[in-house]
Amino acid sequence: MTVTVQLFAGFRELLDGRETIPVELPTSACVADLLQQLREQHPCCRPLLDRSRVAVNQEFAESSARIDAHSEIALIPPVSGG
């Protein structure tokens, strides 16, 4: 399955201003699988990925959380609001 990952802030800057990227994953993948795939596809993102969280359907997700083709997925680098 192909999932769409939303990018913000430092990730968007690292990936040429793109707002989303497609990631190919096996069905019944989890958040850890997504992160591994991203590390392979986009080595430039590895340092920031190591410090980031993943949101699935607008909630912070554990690495074991399941992802399906309809999941709303976003990379959440360390936040700096306020």
């Binding site: 802030a9 430092g10 920031l48 936040v79 700096s80 609001g81």
Partner: peptide, 19 residues
Amino acid sequence: VPIWKKDIPPDGASTWVHP
């Protein structure tokens, strides 16, 4: 809360703030 700020200095070399 997923909010981020980018620091814009006088020389324009901006950087995202990721604590």
